[in-house]
Design a protein around this nucleic acid. Structure first.
Lengths: 209, 209
DNA sequence: GACTGTGAAGCCATTCACAGCT
DNA sequence: AGCTGTGAATGGCTTCACAGTC
């Protein structure tokens, strides 16, 4: 499967549409227009239609979209019709919070390992997963067929851990450390930098007079 | 002060440049070229120069930038030469982790209040800040002159809490809940959706064959 | 010779506006 | 009449390439 050139922003919006559609389905809504999706997300209806048009025709002219169908299609498009195995490296405050966070334990994403250097953390149970020692990293990645590594170690150790994850065979990394990580081009990377988010707010507050 | 049209992406990169420059300064580096900054961040040197050009001329042709000067300028540009007062609403796992997270306690950002509905949380001490009850929200915002509210409550309550924060006078909101929040146009908003990040990884993994 | 600052070109994403279905 | 799907137009960001400066 190959998506020729899908904008990053489109993928982010599709993820949000899928969440909103899921809520709509729970609320018993059966049909929805691009305008209604747009309003629920805060974008334009043309944007919604363009985003969907990258992948096919999912609606009916004059009518709209069947919530159930569209959600099913988005689920497939986003690759959520399968299970992804996750490992969290770093069981500090942030890693533990993510391990216990409901949003991370949802459909399709399964935390299979939690790893920490600190021997005092090893053996602790976080939402049913026992924290393992860092030297087991390679074994755990292979044993549980981990696809995605989540990095919540201090910046100093982030690159070293990343290298080991890549070497052990993970395909994607979600990086919470404030560190620019180098990975081979075939590895999928995303950064969530909490401090950067605050700095961007600070900038906007300072230039909004 | 008014920044006519600075791309969001530029502001994010400036935040990252500032972090890298700070590391360089700690490492004793005195002068740096746009190429070196670019390499440390993973962008092009033209990009670095264009980003800086929105705000002035900070370098010397033929030489480069003085790390100290450029960092000072970026600090001012980003509005980090003052203190911002933060409140965290929701002292669950994620809120607590953020309260204790080093990256949040850095220069310029000061957590002044932590608030939760759960009376069992109230009174607990998180890194020197005592958790307060939700009905104190308005008082705390005013008393501590809070600029930025960080939302880590469940999706169900996020809009209600947001409305109260806005009404009480916060200028910006950093939203960790998986919920599209409506705010007046003068409020600065940023969303950090953890589940969306995983979905984007899932998409990329599915379309990278 | 080295490196910044910047107009111009190129590329990519969003919005517009309407043809095409139901 | 209502709403999708889409080519064309617009707007915005990034890259190029080089003039300007040290």
């Amino acid at each position: 499967m190959k998506a020729y050139k899908i904008p990053e922003a489109t993928v982010v919006r599709l993820s949000i549409y899928s969440r909103q559609l899921s809520n709509m389905r729970k609320a018993g809504v059966e049909t929805v227009s691009s305008e209604e999706i747009a309003n629920s997300v805060g974008v334009s209806s043309a944007q919604v239609r363009k985003d969907l048009a990258y992948f096919g025709e999912f609606g009916t002219r004059g009518v709209g979209y069947r919530v159930d169908d569209l959600l099913g299609n988005l689920t497939k498009i986003l690759g959520l019709n399968r299970e992804w195995n996750l490992a969290i490296i770093g069981a500090g405050k942030l890693g533990s919070a993510l391990a216990l966070y409901e949003g991370f334990r949802q459909r399709g994403f399964s935390i299979k390992a939690i790893i920490d250097v600190d021997e005092k953390m090893v053996g602790q149970d976080l939402a049913g997963v026992v924290v393992d020692s860092l030297d087991k990293l390679e074994n755990l990645i292979k044993e549980h067929d981990i696809n995605i590594g989540i990095i919540t170690v201090p910046a100093m150790e982030a690159q070293r851990v990343t290298d080991r994850l890549v070497e052990a065979g993970v395909a994607a990394i979600l990086n919470f450390s404030p560190q620019v990580l180098r990975v081979p081009p075939d590895i999928v990377m995303r950064n969530v930098d909490l401090a950067v988010n605050l700095k961007v707010l600070s900038f906007n507050l300072s230039h909004n007079s």
